[in-house]
Simulated assay, not measured.
Amino acid sequence: MNSPFTLAVCADMQFTEIPLTDRVRRIGEHGARAEIWDWSRPEVDLQEIASTGVPIESMTGYLSGNLTDDDGIDDFLRTAEESAIASRTVGAPRLNIHGTGLDPHGIPVRPVEVVTGEMWARAVRTLTQLVEIAEKHDVVYQLENLNLAVDHPGTPFSRPQDTLALVRTIGSERLRLNLDLYHAQIGDGNLIETCRECLPWIGEIQVADVPGRCEPGTGEIAYRSIARALADAGYTGTVALEALPSTTSEVAVRTFLDTFSNL
């Protein structure tokens, strides 16, 4: 496998018939790195995951709260710092965040119909404070775009242009984009140009196909063309599979690795 990118696989969506630590180990056997979601769940043992020796590329960077409400901001920053401390166990370099807290089904705890100018201003102030936490703990937070039509209705700051605007406004290497191309395709499309526009601020790119949220090659997105465009643009960072397997996880992971290798 020869790839210009660092390739990773979300352990919360592949090999789900076995415990999380074993999933991480299985992903490592494929030559990939792993990513995990909520590290605070009882079934997540960060020490055990670290003992596998498989690098963890990213994990959830907050547990509750949001960017815009008084009590939500306090919860967001408090749990973001807890996440930064927890990340030391597995050495995860990047911590994933969203515009608001999501329930276990991906629905915002406090859905937002209209994002006001005041909300934008408060989000900028909150993210500025988040950067201070990132500097203190030597981590990078990454703000992920989400789709509103299928998976995450009511999420503020959800479009790639929204996340880009916030990250670019903050202007810190401690705050980057998690550019999720599955979500971007549902909401906006124009993926190659979106990648090119966002390139200077990308922390990582996540992929799944549309419709169905399965591995590349199962839907409408020309991921091989996107891989070549990213390589031609000089991107050498992380590309992560955050997808459901269309048949088996073995097939899904191999297909993903093949799609982004030997370009």
Rank of each mutant, 00 (worst) to 15 (best):
R213Q: 09
G234R: 14
A231L: 09
P211D: 12
T218N: 12
T236N: 06
D209W: 04
E242T: 06
A240P: 15
D232T: 09
R196S: 13
P200M: 10
R224Q: 13
A227C: 07
E193S: 12
Y223N: 09
S225T: 15
L199P: 03
E215S: 05
G217R: 12
A227L: 14
V207C: 02
G219E: 12
I221V: 15
P216H: 07
L244N: 10
I205M: 05
R228E: 15
R228S: 09
E242G: 03
C195Q: 09
A227V: 13
A233P: 05
E215C: 04
A229S: 15
I202S: 03
R213K: 06
I192D: 05
G212N: 06
V210D: 14
I205C: 00
T218K: 08
E215V: 02
T236M: 05
G237T: 08
G219I: 07
I205Y: 01
G217A: 08
S225L: 15
E215P: 09
A240D: 10
A240S: 15
E220Y: 10
E197Y: 14
D232F: 02
V207Q: 01
E193Q: 11
L191F: 02
E197C: 10
G234E: 05
N190R: 08
Q206L: 03
A243F: 04
P216K: 12
A229C: 09
E215L: 00
V207Y: 01
G234M: 06
L241V: 10
G212A: 04
A243T: 04
I221D: 14
E193G: 08
G234F: 03
W201H: 09
R224Y: 02
G219S: 14
P216C: 13
I226S: 04
A229G: 07
T238E: 09
P216F: 10
Y235V: 06
R228C: 04
S225Y: 12
R196W: 03
L241E: 10
C214S: 12
E215R: 02
L230K: 05
L230Y: 02
R228I: 13
